[in-house]
Simulated assay, not measured.
Amino acid sequence: MQCLRLKPLLLILLVQLLTTSLVYAEENKKPRFSLDREAVQSRLNNVDRLINTSSGARRVSEGSEQAKALRGQAANHFQKAQLYYRSDNMELANEELQQATLIMFQAIRLVGTGEVGENKLKNDYQKKRSSLQALLEALQRVAVEKQTPSPETGKIIEQAEAADRLAAAGKIKEAQIQLDIAYETVKQEVEKLRSGDTLIRSLVFASNEEEYAYELDRNETHFMLVKLLLEDRDINAGTQSAVDEYLAEARRLRKLADKASEDGDFEEGIKKLEDSTKQIVRAIRRAGVYIPG
């Protein structure tokens, strides 16, 4: 009998323990913010920008009534946060700032990217599309130059055209994904075909002038690759400085090559062009992109 009386008590204790654990777990889900006065002031400034001056705030101000109402709620929480801050209650100030932030993000999601966001997506697409076209033309030119057609060229063109169709249909994000695939493929193909030195050395030129023209084209192609291969890379200041030094030397050598050719010394011009191209290859590799050469 005593055992039976203990079971309800154990059940009650178990429920209490489970409830306490759930509450504790829920509390630990909440983000923890610093109670330092300067830290809270920084959060106040950030949330103020989010609600009043950010690009998202501008879109909300031109959006639906529901979005505007949410922004109003966020502003109310922000005002309460300011009051708590002035009364030195940093904990409650943080809670109100968190509510203001969550509600404002809800309002921003409601209006979507808006016209500004759509225009940016379109501009980004056009920039990368132009880069893709330039790389594709380089691929085709190098393929003819080396008499080694790339089997991927047709696929790249199809991918680019598919991306253009998606963009024309207003599906700009899907178009960007398709374009990225084509862009990466054409970069890889250009790098493969520009393996340069072994095959170049096997070519026979009718004159030094003809070889100079060939090396000039090769040098210009590499200068183009600098922009196309490095434009999307996140390069730190030290690496960028090294890349700039290599490119400055490449341009200096190119000028010497131009001067030599003007004087009719094509042999010296060829040497300077080759040296210039080597500096460009070093610049590209220093930035973290391997190309043969």
Rank of each mutant, 00 (worst) to 15 (best):
I12A: 10
L14R: 12
Q16G: 15
T20K: 03
V23F: 05
V23M: 04
E27L: 14
E27Q: 15
R32W: 01
F33Q: 13
F33D: 13
E38N: 14
S42E: 15
N46C: 04
L50I: 02
I51M: 05
T53E: 12
T53N: 08
R59K: 10
S61Y: 03
A69N: 10
A69F: 08
A74L: 02
H77A: 13
Q82E: 13
Q82Y: 08
Y85P: 02
Q98Y: 12
Q98A: 08
L102D: 14
Q106S: 06
A107V: 04
L110G: 05
L110W: 05
G114E: 02
V116H: 06
E118N: 14
L121K: 07
L121N: 07
K122E: 09
Y125S: 03
Q126T: 11
S131H: 15
L132A: 04
A134T: 12
A138F: 07
E145T: 13
P151W: 10
T153A: 12
G154F: 13
R165D: 11
A169K: 06
K171F: 09
K173Y: 11
E174C: 07
E174S: 09
A175W: 15
E184G: 05
E184P: 02
V186K: 00
V204Q: 13
S207G: 03
Y214P: 05
N219W: 00
T221S: 14
Q240R: 12
A242G: 03
E245W: 00
E245T: 02
Y246F: 06
L247V: 00
L256N: 08
K259W: 09
E262V: 11
D263C: 03
E268N: 12
E268H: 10
G269Y: 08
D275N: 14
I280V: 15
V281G: 00
R282W: 03
R285E: 00
A287V: 00
A287K: 01
A287L: 01
P292D: 09
G293T: 02
